[in-house]
Design a protein around this nucleic acid. Structure first.
Lengths: 220, 220
DNA sequence: GCAATATATGAGCGATCGCTCAGCAAAAAT
DNA sequence: ATTTTTGCTGAGCGATCGCTCATATATTGC
């Protein structure tokens, strides 16, 4: 259990057969993480579920951490993809339109694989190379900042960096919390209200939509 | 390593001597968590640092999880204390004053023991009884909701529950992120600007301070 | 076909872990 | 003073873990 494993894999998958093996290992890791949690996700078990021997596992992943990192990498890519696609789509739209779409996208992203997302967020110790899962935010922040910059005239804030940080952090936290611990606020009829509230939170902060009539078309 | 330990301690500290022991164990656990991380925080090591035998440890804590839970409990209490005190202090103040104070309090709370806070947030697997560290939020939410309710006339939102959830989650996420991953935004000169931005985010959302002059007295 | 290379196997090592238990020591009750 | 209760000790058990390595099997290049 002492951690003095390699830092790099001994081999890199080159033939098709081995690429299949690598995929199976990553997929098995994800499945076990979801089903049994991080602590019970032993490398022996992962190899067994992937249908390969433990030795094979260590051909391509130098440590358990590397395996989990691959899962995080894959998951993060999927999330970021949703976000980037959404940002591209609304790049030319005014903030009133764009922010609403981005909030929707953030929720969609968290729904890609919520169970895995939860495990990664709650159980995987962030250590070494996976210091923070919030790599998604790191990806999203500069992109969103660029959007704000392009729409500078619609936006009334002193510090764009700070504003981008605040908004990205806020949206991530709210969608995360909603998906993970408050599924009720995302139930069918209520989901729109939630999107609307978060959108308003952002719009008003940016100095738009001030004094808009409120309390209409929102229930409870 | 199989997890079939007791669920309750065999003994409960009754004499002063043993209460000292219990304190030492909790304190040692916190110190080791900070210094070595969760994985290396073994019960044997904890007992050694606390200066008691491993057997004694298991007199008062049925499992490693119970020990960590005690640390979380203690830490959570301290945080909640800061929040509750602040809320009491501003209970009668208008939201323009109160929210700013609450933001400050949230930052202060996260500064109580940031290193421990970080370890608890990032490394401790949330499993079993410690499903979510965000118990702080669970404590804060009803209190803050009550404050909003008492100031209903100053607030223009349709759904108080939803608004309270959004604001509490947002403030927690922003102060957490700032303290943990962006200490730069809390540097001396900039801290006030950060407080101000977060306060404005909340105030504007609640329908106050619309159309206020911005871009003054804030730098960069 | 045959060597060379790439891939896969799995028994098992060394380390560590969480935890138990039989016995001893101090404190409280009698 | 003696018994009873409470607190403390630590060697070591059983389990599991991450991981290595000697060996075997596919695949590729010639």
């Amino acid at each position: 259990m002492v951690q003095r494993p390699q830092k790099t894999p001994r081999k890199i998958a080159s033939q098709k057969r081995s690429r299949v093996t690598v995929d199976a290992l990553v997929e098995a890791t994800a499945r076990i993480l979801v089903k049994d949690g991080y602590d019970r996700a032993s490398t022996n078990r992962i190899a067994a579920v992937a249908g390969v021997s433990i030795g094979t596992l260590y051909q391509y992943f130098p440590s358990k951490e590397a395996l989990v990192e691959a899962v995080i990498e894959r998951h993060t890519q999927e999330l970021s993809q949703v976000g980037q696609t959404a940002l591209l789509k609304v790049a030319a739209s005014p903030i009133e339109i764009a922010l609403r779409e981005l909030v929707r996208a953030a929720i969609d992203a968290h729904r890609v694989d919520p169970k895995l997302h939860r495990v990664l967020a709650e159980q995987v110790p962030r250590t070494g190379r996976l210091e923070d899962i919030e790599a998604v935010e790191r990806n999203a922040l500069p992109l969103f900042r660029a959007y704000l910059e392009a729409h500078r005239s619609e936006v009334d804030v002193a510090d764009l960096d700070l504003a981008a940080f605040i908004l990205v952090t806020t949206v991530e936290a709210l969608t995360h919390s909603a998906v993970i611990t408050r599924p009720d606020v995302l139930a069918d009829e209520k989901a729109d209200a939630f999107v609307e509230e978060v959108t308003q939170l952002m719009l008003r902060y940016l100095g738009r939509d001030r004094g808009a009539k409120r309390g209409t078309a929102r229930s409870k």
